[in-house]
Structures are given as C-alpha cells and as structure tokens.
Amino acid sequence: MDVLSDVITALRTGQPRSARVAWHAPWAQQFASVPGSAGFQIVLEGPCWLVAPDIGPMRLAPGDIVFRPHGRGHTLADSPSTSPDAPACDPNELPLQPYADNVVGTPADTAASATVTLCGAYQLDPIHAHPLLDDLPELIHLPAHLGRHPELRATVDLLATELQRPRLGTDAIIPALLDTLLLHILRTWLDQNPPPGTVSTGWAAALKDPATAVALHAIHRDPARPWTVATLAAEAGLSRAPFARRFTTLLGQPPLTYLTWWRMTTASRLLRQSDKPLSVIAARVGYTSEFAFANAFKRRYGTSPGRYRRNG
C-alpha cells in the first residue's frame, strides 16, 4: 500500500456518516465538537456561512468543501447573525433520516431560500492516529473552481446522488464513497502544500521530497524487511548521513523511530482485526522472535500483544 492509503487505514474506525440536508432560511445549525472525529461540509446549492470560534465567518458558495480534521465544533447558517435555536448536532449521529432529504425549516419561497449541503463525519482512532493528521490545519477549505479537482468533484456528485436517490447497493456504496472522498480531500490538500517557492517541513513536504517519499513508500510497502538507515538511504539514492538528516528535518523523527512506530501500528491493527497467531504477526512486522516482538509491543502500548487482543 502507498503511504496515504495506509494513513487512512490506520486512522479510520467505525462507519463514516453522511446526510444530504435542505436548509430553509432563516436557519442555523451548530455541529458539536467531537474529539476523535473529522467532519466535512459540502455546499451543493445556495450560499451559506460557516462560523467557528477559531476562525472568522466564512462565506461558502456552491461547490465549496470544508473539512475539519480535528473534530472542532462549528455552525452552518444562512447568515452570520442567525443563531442556532436547536441543540448542537453530533456529527457521528448523522444521518438525521437515512437516505432522505433532511429538510430543516419551513420554506416560504423554496427557490429563493433553499441551501442544500452534504454534511458528514469520520470516526478516527486517536491511539493510532498517524502523524500526518497532526500536520493538518484546523480547517481545510477547498473552494469550487470549474475544472479543478475533477476526481474530487466526481466523488461528491456520486455521493450526493446516492443520498438523494438510494437504490440497490446504496448501503455498500456510500461508505466506499465517503472513504474515497476523504482520500481525495487529503490528496488535494497535500498537492497544494507547501505552496510553490516556500521552504517547509512536515508530511506534505516529505511526500513531495523524492528521497524521503521513496523511503516512506519502502517502509509502508514492506515493513517486515530488516531496514537500516543505510538500506533506506540506498533506496532514496543518498548516502546515510544526508538521508538521516533530511528525513529527521522533514518529519521530526529519525527513520528507524518512524519504522518502529509503523510496525507497532500495523501489529495492533492485525491483532484487532484478525485471529492470526502472534508468531505470524511478529513476522509480518519484521520480528523473527515472538519474544522480541512482545517486548517492543509492550514498550509502545504498555501491555502484551495477547492482552491487547483480548481487550480489543
């Protein structure tokens, strides 16, 4: 798997949620702050405003996408001056009504007052959160631009259609489309950061740096391989010392520290999601000795692999 696909696999847990909502002025809906989740708002029709304590009022137009990767609360409204008159919505409790046009407000003039949005949320696993998540800003705003991000726009159109007109297979299609949407949002943000001509560190910069990106893909492609700084440097086409400095500068941790973290994250997922013997899991993440694997796992999680599986 590539790095971004692995990041999603490590982060995501439970079922993603989504609803298509038609709002009729005056309206305002508060979305609660939910640690361990990430939420999105997509404007399909009509303008609206996003208001949040950590940012100023932001006017959104049809086609705009807003992503809140750290689960911070916000309000969506027809105007910054409209106050919510209902309890805050927990994004993880969407949809309001499964596969129905959720209508809020009583329209006096539907054509003039309707705003239609897709709102949704992903449950994240804070214990196994990938460090890429820490690099994301509080808010990612992807404005609508004709012809830009065609894959992202196509995914939004497919999701909107399935929510509006459910058919056979909709229950399977919607979760797949929500995961695809999350990948396209992150891919788009990574493509745009760091801005051209700037010097930056972090995951966006690391995945654009040829040497570091090659090393990361090698780790994710084959975590069981007995990697050393020298062998990773060879993959990256650099000598050992320059590679180690480059990796550490961009990602804030040495290559082998990240390798160990990823091995343990992979092992914990296999323990939760499979009944494979501990010896098999140990080999999958690069340990020839089950004893050595158990010691490394206990250092990371404070418990043995067997107990972790039983309590999972």
Rank of each mutant, 00 (worst) to 15 (best):
D2L: 08
L4Y: 06
S5G: 14
V7F: 07
I8Q: 12
T9W: 08
A10L: 13
R12T: 12
R12E: 13
T13E: 11
Q15H: 10
Q15N: 10
Q15V: 09
R17A: 10
A22C: 10
H24K: 11
H24M: 13
H24S: 15
A25P: 00
W27R: 06
Q29W: 02
F31I: 09
S33Q: 14
S37D: 00
G39W: 00
V43I: 14
E45G: 01
W49N: 13
V51E: 02
A52E: 06
P57M: 06
M58V: 10
D64Y: 00
V66K: 03
R68L: 13
T75N: 01
L76Y: 00
D85W: 04
A86V: 08
D90E: 07
P91F: 05
N92F: 05
A100H: 10
D101L: 15
D109I: 05
D109T: 08
A111H: 09
A114L: 06
V116T: 14
T117H: 02
G120C: 05
D125W: 03
P131V: 07
D134A: 14
L136G: 04
P137N: 12
I140A: 08
A154H: 13
D157A: 15
A160H: 06
T161D: 15
L163Q: 12
L168A: 15
G169V: 04
D171Y: 05
T180Y: 02
H184R: 14
I185V: 14
L186E: 04
D191T: 12
Q192C: 11
T198G: 08
T198A: 11
T198F: 03
V199F: 09
S200Q: 12
S200R: 13
G202I: 06
A211G: 11
T212M: 04
T212P: 05
A213I: 00
T228C: 07
T228G: 09
L232N: 01
A234R: 12
A236K: 01
P242F: 10
P242S: 10
R246D: 09
G252S: 12
G252Y: 03
T260M: 12
T266W: 00
A267P: 00
Q273V: 06
A282T: 02
V285I: 08
G286E: 01
A294W: 04
Y301Q: 06
S304T: 15
G306Y: 03
G312V: 00
